[in-house]
Amino acid sequence: MTATGLKINQTYEIEGISASPLMVRMMEMGVMPGKSISLLQKAPFKGPMAFLIEGNILALRIEEADLIQIKGS
């Protein structure tokens, strides 16, 4: 599963980030394997998603959220 499939307000763990030019950018913003992640909000019409990652809220488009692999599913 990737971060696009998260249920709202449940806590998951990040397993990894798919290889992409955005990978380093995600990592430097604190999106790293082992971090906890939960989905807070979704903008309508498949707009951006807001995630809580280690105390920080990050808004990502679906394409970017799809790069985040989630553990245990």
């Binding site: 030019p21 955005l22 913003m29 951006p48 920080n56 809220i57 990050l58 808004a59 488009r61």
Partner: peptide, 8 residues
């Protein structure tokens, strides 16, 4: 590439 990665 256009992307959105904004801290709230």
């Amino acid at each position: 590439k256009s992307f959105l990665m904004t801290e709230l």
